[in-house]
């Protein structure tokens, strides 16, 4: 297991999974030029599910979640998010992007804006929320990620862990129904990983639908209800975490787990 064992007691009272489908991906394929990055992906995510996607680098896991909010374009198959099909129609893309929040490996905070402005930018310009209200929402989420006192600083003045928590708060300000995490802790120092993971666990406890690309197996064990292993652009194995870690079926999965867990 990861050295970062999750110590706290996790409250699962809100973590119910409804029958409603949040994301539906059917026979999706993607190519970069001639390179076949995603091969025949089929995935159904219920509302309230917490899915961890892992796999070796270059396996297409980041590309997969980036397809979900159209940061990458897929070439065949369907992606349906919240009942809206993702096509090149700008209206659909806008609708989906305002429902789906995303956190990046390198935070991507806007360096020219204060923390508060980072958080209010999208609500004001996309959701047309009055500034005062947007600031209240922002402060609410900043308190949630435990950095309300940094609201008037600039991103450059914050530590990596704090920046990533701001990035999470910034996404939450749009009140998304789905959150995507693209390796949120891999650019962080060990002591900062914990504060970010704690924030993510809290989010899970509130019943957020989450898709998370990460190598934090402790987090997967504690929070996820499904772990997906990808290699060579395809889903190799998926299972609920306990079974996934203790009884992997595929040879590739076994090899990957032995490397990452250091057994």
């Amino acid at each position: 297991m990861s050295e970062l064992a999750i110590e706290r007691q996790i409250d699962r009272s809100h973590m119910t999974i409804s029958d409603e489908v949040a994301i539906q991906i059917n026979n999706m394929n993607k190519w970069y030029g001639q390179f076949h990055v995603l091969r025949d992906i089929n995935l159904t995510v219920q509302r309230g599910e917490r899915i961890v996607i892992c796999g070796p680098s270059g396996s297409g896991k980041s590309t997969l979640i980036r397809c979900i909010n159209r940061l990458e374009e897929h070439q065949s198959g369907d992606i349906i998010v919240d009942g809206t099909e993702l096509t090149s129609d700008l209206k659909n893309i806008d609708k989906i992007r305002s429902e789906v929040g995303m956190c990046f490996q390198h935070f991507n905070l806007f360096p020219h804006l204060t923390i508060l402005e980072n958080c209010t930018l999208a609500p004001i310009w996309v959701r047309k929320v009055p500034r005062k209200e947007a600031e209240d929402i922002a402060m609410h989420y900043l308190e949630k990620v435990k950095i309300p006192d940094q609201a008037h600083k600039y991103p450059g003045m914050l530590s990596g862990g704090q920046q990533q928590r701001v990035a999470i708060a910034r996404s939450l300000c749009m009140k998304p129904r789905i959150m995507l995490f693209d390796e949120p802790t891999s650019a962080l120092d060990p002591e900062m990983i914990k504060e970010v993971l704690d924030t993510m666990i809290e989010l899970a406890e509130e019943g957020m639908t989450m898709l998370c690309v990460t190598h934090e197996m402790g987090f997967a064990q504690a929070v996820a209800n499904r772990v997906i292993f990808m290699d060579q652009g395809q889903i190799i194995e998926q299972n609920e975490p306990h079974a996934f870690f203790n009884d992997p079926q595929s040879d590739r999965t076994k090899l990957f787990l032995s490397q990452i867990l250091g057994h």
Binding site: I17, D40, Q234, N239, E240, P241, A243, Q249, S250
Partner: peptide
């Protein structure tokens, strides 16, 4: 642990070229 373990279990048998 999870109520939908049966539905999620999946192992790929053959790789897609």
């Amino acid at each position: 642990m999870s109520d939908n373990a049966q539905t999620v279990r999946y192992v790929r048998e053959s790789m897609i070229p």
